[in-house]
């Protein structure tokens, strides 16, 4: 049976992959993504738990709370990303927004 057009195209793009990159194609697998997620979760809790074994000395008292940086990193990152939704609604415009006005961009 002859190959369909999309599969030929896929084969062509696969042929063009850099030889070095072929060694790292596993990073695309969904299972790897899931394992990475689990690893990061365990590592976050593990690093936070280290504070129970060793008291961190900080200039700021409340930074000595157990897992302070882990909680703050997680919360700060999530805040920044989630704020993107309302912010985009507020200030996002079509790509040609300035172009329409002034022949720009």
């Amino acid at each position: 049976m002859s190959e369909t057009k999309p599969s030929r195209k896929r084969k062509k793009t696969e042929d063009e992959i850099h030889p070095v990159s072929r060694l790292f194609l596993w990073v695309e697998k969904p299972s790897v993504h899931f394992i990475f997620l689990i690893f990061l979760g365990i590592a976050s809790f593990g690093l936070g738990a280290l504070d129970f074994l060793h008291h961190r000395h900080e200039y700021v008292d409340w930074a000595e709370w157990h897992g302070f940086y882990a909680w703050f990193g997680f919360g700060g990152f999530a805040l920044a990303v989630l704020a993107g939704w309302p912010l985009r609604k507020l200030i996002g415009r079509p790509e040609d927004y300035y172009e329409k006005a002034a022949g720009d961009d």
């Binding site: 590592a43 690093l47 280290l50």
Partner: peptide
């Protein structure tokens, strides 16, 4: 440890 807590937990959030 403090810096790794911050970065790894932020990557976990991502």
């Amino acid at each position: 440890v403090g810096q790794m807590q911050l970065l790894i937990a932020a990557m976990f959030a991502f």
